[in-house]
């Protein structure tokens, strides 16, 4: 378990009407730790990821970030969200803005940076994800992999304490997955705290400190990647791994 938890969930329960999607979730993510969340679809892993910056509200339990509980709504919540970067399955770039504007917008609006200062920082980040040459293009002119890398740069521009990845490569063509994973691997090496919902077992093995396996709204296993992949304890995990690893 994490020594110095940055993100901590305790007894979190979430319902969609009758459907109980998160059941008594306890999870702590330490500073600089990379936690990969895997599990069959409908197991609640995306929902879990989205509760951490309150894109989904929870019915009970507490979620704390850096020791402070998540604010309810309004300005305080907005400030907190700026501290937690989020990358979505469907990229969600602002379609009417150029790549550069996408990365700069929240720096200006939320961080109060001057336009040219924000643009300078945006260019640095675009350089880091290998897309500086595309700064003037619109999202629709980029491939999926490029869009996702812009989305990562956009989240990093806020200098977040942690990054959440909600199936960042699930909507990508196979040949584009690696360019996104490479950016994520680099982030992990740089010591970013990351929660990654993914089906990329290679990434989990290589970059994760822990693998959290979810099924039916519960955390079934929470272990080091090598242990989990070579010797899963639960039947549910064995079943899941046998299905995804043999095809």
């Amino acid at each position: 378990m994490a020594v110095d938890p940055l993100i901590e969930l305790q007894g979190v329960n979430k319902y969609y009407g009758e459907l109980h999607v998160l059941k008594d979730i306890d999870l702590a993510v330490g500073r600089g730790e990379v936690v990969v969340v895997i599990g069959p679809s409908g197991s609640g892993k995306s929902t879990l990821c989205r509760t951490i910056n309150r894109l989904e509200t929870v019915q009970s339990g507490t979620i704390t970030l850096d020791g402070r509980p998540l604010p309810e709504e309004g300005k305080a919540l907005a400030r907190l969200r700026a501290e937690v970067g989020m990358v979505f399955q469907s990229f969600n770039l602002f379609a009417h803005k150029t790549v550069l504007q996408n990365v700069s917008l929240a720096q200006v609006k939320v961080r109060g940076r001057k336009r040219d200062e924000a643009d300078r920082r945006s260019r640095e980040l675009l350089e880091r994800v290998g897309l500086r040459a595309h700064a003037a293009k619109y999202p629709a002119q980029l491939s999926g992999g490029q869009q996702q890398r812009v989305a990562i740069a956009r989240a990093l521009a806020m200098e977040p304490k942690a990054m959440l990845f909600d199936e960042p490569t699930s909507a990508l063509d196979p040949e584009m997955i690696n360019e996104v994973l490479e950016v994520m691997r680099q982030l992990a090496r740089d010591g970013m705290t990351m929660v990654v919902v993914t089906h990329e077992m290679g990434f989990a093995r290589a970059s994760a400190n822990r693998v959290v396996f979810m099924a039916d709204g519960r955390i079934v296993e929470d272990r080091a990647p090598e242990e989990f992949f070579t010797d899963p304890r639960s039947e549910r995990a064995k079943d899941f791994l046998s299905k995804i690893l043999k095809h």
Partner: peptide
């Protein structure tokens, strides 16, 4: 306007008014 763009704006720390005026309405208007 895809709801994801609004979520992305909120996840970056933009307020409701900023999300509406900088992301959603300019595209809605078009």
């Amino acid at each position: 306007v895809p709801t994801g763009q609004g979520e992305a704006a909120r996840s970056l720390g933009m307020t409701f008014a900023q999300t509406l005026s900088a992301v959603v309405l300019p595209q809605a208007f078009r």
